[in-house]
């Protein structure tokens, strides 16, 4: 059945967008920096993994290396760009323009290092299908959903149960107090950036595996993700993930009614109406 197939496809790609949304939300709510270069990290992750796979490295290892590479790139941006700007007391506008610069550098760096053209992973198993009865999914889709849910679960666990998670929530909710109680806000920012970058990269890899990659598609993904972050209520990780999945399902199911090329316009129109009606988001922060 077409509807069920679209529903399943929407849920699967929702897990990938949800990962971008959650990681963006984590970083944004901790640092209040609107990190548009996150889209570039997403792209970088996918290309690094593709490069590894092309060298014949087993997919899992290529994936781990790419995630680590992206986390490192994020940490570099944090340490040498955002930290520096904050030390110079830059206004949010200046931070934003610098972030946009980092996005352009990452996307076009990837385009120059690899190729500006569309790429596909070489692993033949990625298109093999699995019949679920109501719908069928590819192995790649299974990985997209599994990695998205697992990473989201791991993040929630980390946030609730570990010392780092508590430090992150503490810094996010009161940076000045965190400074004077020696929670080390700087190193928390660095850690959050590395974690968020790793998650975005994972999502970029999985989407690349499932579909194809192109250096400039990250912005579109990030737009949907940030819409989910705002609609879900800033600061609510669960809200961001749930709304991202819902948006993705909506975009997919709407394919019955309208061609896919209009889906971003429709999503955006929905968002504009939404922020006019309910600017605080669906999931109120505690």
């Amino acid at each position: 059945m077409l509807f069920l197939q679209l529903l399943v496809d929407g849920l699967v790609s929702g897990c990938a967008i949800g990962l971008v949304a959650v990681s963006f939300s984590l970083y944004y709510s901790t640092t209040r920096v609107f990190h548009v270069a996150h889209a570039g990290i997403y792209t970088l992750g996918g290309y690094l993994a593709w490069y590894g796979a092309m060298q014949g490295i087993p997919f899992a290892i290529a994936c781990a290396l790419a995630v680590a590479g992206a986390a490192f790139a994020g940490a570099v941006i944090q340490r040498f760009l955002y930290d520096e700007l904050e030390r110079r007391e830059a206004t949010p506008l200046v931070m934003l323009i610098a972030s946009l610069g980092a996005l352009a550098v990452l996307q076009n760096g990837v385009a120059m290092l690899f190729t500006p053209n569309i790429l596909q992973f070489p692993n033949p198993w990625r298109t093999r299908m699995l019949d679920l009865g109501i719908a069928s999914v590819s192995y790649a889709q299974v990985l997209v959903a599994a990695s998205g849910l697992a990473a989201f679960g791991a993040l929630m666990w980390m946030s609730r149960r570990t010392l780092l998670g508590r430090r992150i929530r503490a810094v996010a909710s009161n940076p000045f107090l965190a400074e004077i109680t020696r929670l080390g806000p700087r190193s928390v920012y660095l850690a959050v950036m590395a974690i968020a970058s790793a998650m975005a990269a994972l999502s970029g890899i999985m989407v690349g595996l499932d579909q194809a990659m192109q250096p400039y598609t990250g912005v579109l993904v990030l737009l949907t993700a940030t819409i989910a972050v705002i609609a879900g209520g800033i600061g609510s990780l669960t809200g961001a993930f749930v709304v991202a999945v819902a948006l993705s399902v909506l975009q997919n199911v709407a394919l019955i009614l309208m061609p896919g090329r209009w889906s971003i316009a429709a999503t955006f129109a929905l968002f504009v109406v939404f922020i006019l009606v309910k600017p605080e988001g669906l999931f109120r922060k505690r």
Binding site: L163, R169, S173, N174, L177, T181, R182, G235
Partner: peptide, 21 residues
């Protein structure tokens, strides 16, 4: 004002500061 971490429980507030120090 704002002498506490509002998104943490009382116990978490104390715990995180104690462990970091």
């Amino acid at each position: 004002s704002r002498g506490v971490f509002p998104d943490l429980t009382v116990e978490e507030n104390l715990d995180v500061v104690a462990r970091m120090n």
